[in-house]
């Protein structure tokens, strides 16, 4: 049975097509979900893609969090549905309180797009189980508001519980605290990542194929066997 991975389109989502392509390349069926529809159509996992949902008005992700589809996703995530938030998706997960902390304006105040080395710190999540802990990967980063911040106690907790999923290596592109690029919730099914694994799934268009591991991981998580 092919796993079905939902990809949500909010008004202003931009990388939804790319996330769906990555899901297909990984070997799953991509199911497009619409922000106004609370029905998850029985998907096995969900990707919240990058972009500028609702124009980033108010705060990045602050409006998307209230979309009908998010009510269903929040409930399902609490029951263990694997959810990956990429960039704007990460921002939405923080606004929805599925993940702690917040993403703020890049420290240098510029949008920045570059190929970024990350170190995978935790291979224990639904979205990173095909990586080795400590493995360095190269995927694009592109954001204007990707500076991860949280209070020191939360950061210490994340570190202590092994919930920092990936860190920036060889330069921090946005000023994130403790070079954090990705985190997970306590159960390991919800992951937020600022760089874009969906842009590193084809040799022709990406800087590497390293992004594919996030999507094959969730299939392994769902089926119990490597994709």
């Amino acid at each position: 049975m092919t796993a079905r991975v939902g990809v949500v389109t909010f008004p202003g989502s931009l990388d939804d097509g790319d996330a769906a392509r990555a899901v297909r390349i990984a070997g799953a069926e991509a199911v497009r979900l619409w922000h106004g529809d609370a029905d998850l159509h029985g998907v096995d996992a969900v990707v919240l893609p990058g972009g500028f949902s609702y124009g980033d008005y108010l705060r990045c992700g602050a409006i998307a969090r209230f979309a009908p589809v998010m009510e269903a996703i929040i409930a399902a995530a609490r029951d263990g549905l694997p959810v990956l938030g990429i960039c704007n998706g990460f921002q939405i997960l923080c606004e929805a309180h599925l993940l702690p902390g917040a993403l703020t304006r890049n420290q240098h105040l510029h949008f920045r797009n570059r190929d970024q080395v990350l170190r995978v710190e935790s291979a224990g999540t639904a979205w990173t189980n095909t990586f080795q802990p400590g493995q360095e990967i190269l995927i694009p980063v592109k954001n204007g508001e990707g500076c991860y911040v949280a209070d020191p106690r939360t950061l210490d907790e994340l570190e202590a519980e092994g919930r920092v999923v990936a860190r920036y290596v060889g330069g921090n592109p946005n000023g994130s605290q403790r070079d954090i690029a990705a985190i997970t919730n306590a159960a390991g099914n919800v992951v937020g990542i600022m760089p874009h694994p969906e842009h590193a799934v084809e040799a022709l268009t990406g800087p590497s194929l390293d992004g594919l591991g996030f999507f094959t991981s969730v299939l392994k998580h769902l089926t119990g066997v490597p994709a």
């Binding site: 080395v117 190269l138 290596v169 330069g171 000023g175 040799a203 022709l204 990406g206 590497s208």
Partner: peptide
């Protein structure tokens, strides 16, 4: 400006693949 932003990645791709889009 931006020279003070000394956060330029210094490492080449750890897993280089075939010629790709735009990977200095």
């Amino acid at each position: 400006g931006g020279a003070a932003d000394a956060t330029v990645p210094g490492a080449p791709a750890p897993t280089p693949v075939a010629p790709v889009g735009d990977a200095p």
